[in-house]
Design a protein around this nucleic acid. Structure first.
Length: 293
DNA sequence: TACCAGGGCCTTT
DNA sequence: AAAGGCCATGGT
């Protein structure tokens, strides 16, 4: 019943959940994901094979296109709704009091639990790249190689195409380097070709990335062409639930060299990745504020 | 060691 | 309107 396509005459299912401190907007705009677009106050996107529209009023989070069972089975995990971020914030702030403002500012941000394969590909594409372009490339790949997403049946043809699933390794492995270049991947195209072939052949154990000792997981990812330290940390943090991982880009590096977080013990925290997210939002917000002066 | 590849967004001029 | 910075990795 619940998984039937929504034909035009049907009322789509909807479910509302108390989401506490979680901010859908802050989380989905934070740069950790690339497939959510804001349309008249709702965040629309495809993840975990499903299309859903997310809206929030206060602490009430509403998912149009989901029922209770999908919420419990999929979305609570994806949005990381069960985790106690208040405790994490306290822990992080205790370790590094200078982060108090940053943590308070970005309090509603959760680390999404994205699918490992999609996260790995997404962050390979993200390297040396900007967010609008990353989003466009990923959408191209979904349009051309992905399956239709569950719950997107009521959309216009073009919207449904844009909302297709991220291609599986097998689906992506059918793309040639030239095609991937044409879709905007640039010099990252051969990385994705090689990666998708290896993944399709079962050479990469994504379950193990989530459970292995962290340095083993890092080593596994770093052994893949196109995966350096930044991409590996992003894939682990956003795709494998490894909250201790700490992606360092120029913004974070500057913060670590500045009075804001210099000499910090943050990197040793089991929640270093959450702290990184707080720091990142805070810096970017300050940057934006400064540039508007 | 230093530099470049692929490309487009963003800020500054 | 034009110019220059930015971005992460691998290869030379």
């Amino acid at each position: 019943m619940t998984e039937k396509p929504f034909s035009s005459g049907n009322v789509r299912q909807s479910v509302t959940v108390e989401a506490g401190n979680f901010s859908a907007a802050a989380t989905l705009k934070s740069g950790q994901c690339f497939r959510w677009v804001e349309r008249n106050g709702k965040f629309c996107g495809t993840a975990m094979g499903r299309y859903v529209e997310v809206s929030q009023e206060g602490t009430a989070l509403t998912l149009d296109g989901s029922d209770q069972s999908a919420l419990d089975a999929v979305w609570r995990g994806y949005f990381d709704l069960e985790r106690d971020y208040d405790s994490i914030r306290e822990s992080v702030t205790r370790l590094e009091p200078r982060l108090r403002d940053a943590a308070a500012y970005a309090a509603g941000i959760h680390i999404l639990r994205q699918e490992p394969w999609e996260a790995l590909c997404s962050f390979i594409i993200s390297q040396n790249n900007n967010i609008p372009r990353i989003r466009g490339i990923i959408e191209n790949l979904c349009r051309h190689y992905g399956q239709p997403s569950l719950g997107s049946e009521h959309l216009s043809a073009d919207e449904a195409a844009a909302a297709r699933c991220f291609p599986t390794a097998e689906e992506l492995s059918r793309a040639s380097e030239e095609e991937l270049r044409a879709f905007g991947c640039g010099y990252r195209a051969p990385y994705l070709v090689e990666l998708s072939h290896r993944a399709a052949a079962g050479e990469i154990d994504f379950d193990r990335l989530q459970s292995a000792p962290i340095d083993e997981a890092r080593k596994t990812l770093r052994s893949l062409r196109g995966v350096g330290p930044k991409v590996a940390e992003c894939a682990l943090l956003y795709g494998c639930g490894r909250l201790e991982c700490f992606p360092v880009d120029v913004w974070i590096r500057r913060a670590l060299e500045s009075d804001l977080a210099g000499g910090s013990a943050l990197l040793e925290s089991p929640y270093a990745g959450v702290a990184q997210q707080y720091l990142f939002e805070y810096i970017r917000r300050k940057q934006t504020a400064d540039s508007q002066k």
